[in-house]
Design a protein around this nucleic acid. Structure first.
Lengths: 362, 362
DNA sequence: CAGCCGATGTACATCGATGTAAAAACGTGC
DNA sequence: GCACGTTTTTACATCGATGTACATCGGCTG
């Protein structure tokens, strides 16, 4: 029960502590015989390396933080799953923090939580401003997720503006003319919502459709209740859309519910499309068309980008090819695709197992 | 940019390192003047405590692990959210691990991941056996979630058997007679699924309804696709149920989709009830009746139980009232309630905003 | 066989914070 | 002014692993 230290293994094997350390760390110059003897001692005593000691000595923890607004928003949960998997493959451990979209929490994350605990941060910001990014100091390596086109940090996202434009164009192509943007907001800010709104407006403009600021339905959160309420409010005010561009799937699923309650058929009366391709959208009634980002790619690239940045910081004097010392921030764009399901397709609905295969979607 | 150590603060403030440490740790016997001087030096230099050093010295990290099968199953995501919140309030940090329901991963979690990195573990097991629990050694304090009625570890759950029985009784009370248990499994094992199956059978028996082993629809996972497929398989085989007891909401949501595709109306033809009360069930069509566990309570109790157990381990000689030294394992039962929505209620469905308020559920 | 080289192995200092034990400073009562 | 009990502060060792610098060993060359 008493903890086994490297010292104990050394004594047991009749070698020095450093030699044991060398064996553990796969140092090249250890004879096979020594290695075997030490390994036996390790197994015999059940030695486990103490990370505190290693951390103190090395200055690295092997822990990265994934910081998201809310973990129980399926998109973030799915993303987290991928990030954890990618990190694991690189012997990194993931710590998850929730900000609730709060700026102070996000700032704390940027600063590495005011401690040396995490080696790096993957942050999905909601409330940060460009200034916050510029003024950070003493921060650990950081990768940002989502639209935030400022210089100053690595950054991974789909092309949100183009994606929104494509989605909107698809709705227009279906002959829809009164298209609301649920969750849209019109300030020219940095966020993902703003980029998607720009794409929405661009599509309208390209089709010579009038843009009415009232077509942007503001939301308090990006969850189902907010989507349901925003659409209900619009309908109560007498707005009669024939399509909804919802800025994420949760809003869309909430919207579907409200449309159902108001007796509006989807997609016949109102076509609906979302973003994120969460699993629930494949089983809703009707199934939900959506912009599907390559989540696995987002996770893989984010982790990989962060790992490189961490290595960079580690080598204090990067005598490599790069002269400037630190690479400039990278902006990586991940692929997305439009996944069309019942909520825009007008697939025959109703009784009979006949349409099963088709209806399943994807 | 160079890291500031306690030594630097001490020099700057003209006191010893220990005094600085005392200030940081709110040691009582520090004069106000000294405290002020030191605090100023800390602020001035921007000193941040180095957790590696503290960890090494104290043997505690302040990190607990939450180990779940899959993070993107909404129930676990919602639970994680609560656990993180509770832990934060106690200055603990949460590390999330996914096992994929794999026994080896769960065993690794039990063993504290073979390192001194986490102070404690909250584990939601799927594949562990009673033996695994008994034979663990050198493990950090652990709290188990879900049904696993073995001695040997603290444990928090709702009364799954009773909950399943109540849910089934409700279906029977609606006049339903052919009730399938989606996800049910009949071995007398330890898991949550087994306990719920027992409750299901108990309700059938109490109502003098025949129990047909074929009424248990096995599933490969507890996610929507599995629920959809299991029900489709049963229907294809000609089974015609008038109610489904789904062992979680994801299975139920998948089942709703299949029923829709087969043209069976819910709840008129088939009543459906699930477990977990995930947000999606409040917005599905129809909205989903469910057994709602008090998730916040599960999280709060689990974290609190773990914290106590950790303190216990810390104080090497617990000179308290307890003579045995270590308290015996606790089994805590959390409240649940039946939330009835459209999928069992037979609420008027269809056009018109008239039923909005009622239909919203909860 | 002297001399040198590369491969192995070791002693010791070090990372940063905190517990221990004891010294220094401060009061208090007589 | 002194002995004595508290506070307050300090010096030093310690937690466990690993980097540095050096010692040792065996083999090989000339």
């Amino acid at each position: 029960m008493a903890r086994v230290r490297i010292k104990d293994v050394a004594r047991h094997a009749g070698v020095s502590e450093k030699t044991v350390s060398n064996v553990i760390n796969d140092y090249v110059h250890v004879s096979d015989r020594t290695r075997r003897v030490v390994q036996e001692a390790i197994d015999h005593l059940g030695y486990k390396v103490n990370l505190a000691g290693r951390h103190l000595r090395k200055g690295r923890t092997g822990v990265i933080a994934l910081v998201v607004p809310e973990l129980d928003v399926p998109y973030f949960a799915e993303l987290a799953r991928h990030v954890i998997r990618e990190a694991e493959q690189r012997s990194l451990t993931v710590l998850i923090h929730q900000t609730g979209g709060d700026r102070d929490h996000e700032l704390a994350a940027l600063a590495g939580f005011g401690s040396t605990f995490v080696d790096g941060v993957i942050l999905s910001p909601l409330a940060l401003t460009a200034d916050d990014l510029r003024h950070r100091a003493d921060a650990p390596p950081t990768v940002l997720l989502g639209e935030l086109l400022e210089e100053g940090a690595d950054h991974v996202a789909i092309d949100n503006e183009r994606a929104a434009r494509e989605a909107t164009e698809h709705l227009i192509g279906l002959g829809r003319r009164t298209i609301l943007a649920v969750g849209g907001r019109d300030d020219a800010g940095l966020g993902t919502a703003e980029a998607r709104t720009r794409g929405y407006r661009a599509a309208l403009a390209a089709a010579d459709l009038a843009y009415d600021p009232a077509a942007l339905l503001p939301v308090a959160s990006f969850r189902m209740p907010a989507g349901a309420e925003a659409v209900a409010r619009a309908l109560d005010e007498g707005v009669r859309p024939d399509a909804l561009l919802c800025l994420n799937d949760q809003l869309a699923l909430g919207a579907l519910r409200t449309l159902y309650e108001y007796g509006m058929r989807v997609p016949e009366d109102v076509a609906v499309i979302g973003f994120d391709d969460v699993e629930a959208g494949r089983f809703s009634t009707p199934t939900l068309s959506t912009v599907a980002p390559d989540k696995a790619a987002v996770a893989r690239i984010a982790v990989e980008l962060l790992r490189r940045r961490m290595d960079e910081t580690g080598d204090q004097a990067p005598a490599d090819a790069s002269p400037a010392g630190v690479r400039s921030p990278q902006d990586l764009v991940v692929a997305h695709r439009l996944v069309l399901r019942e909520s825009t397709e007008g697939v025959a609905r109703g009784p009979g197992p006949g349409n099963r295969g088709a209806a399943r979607g994807r």
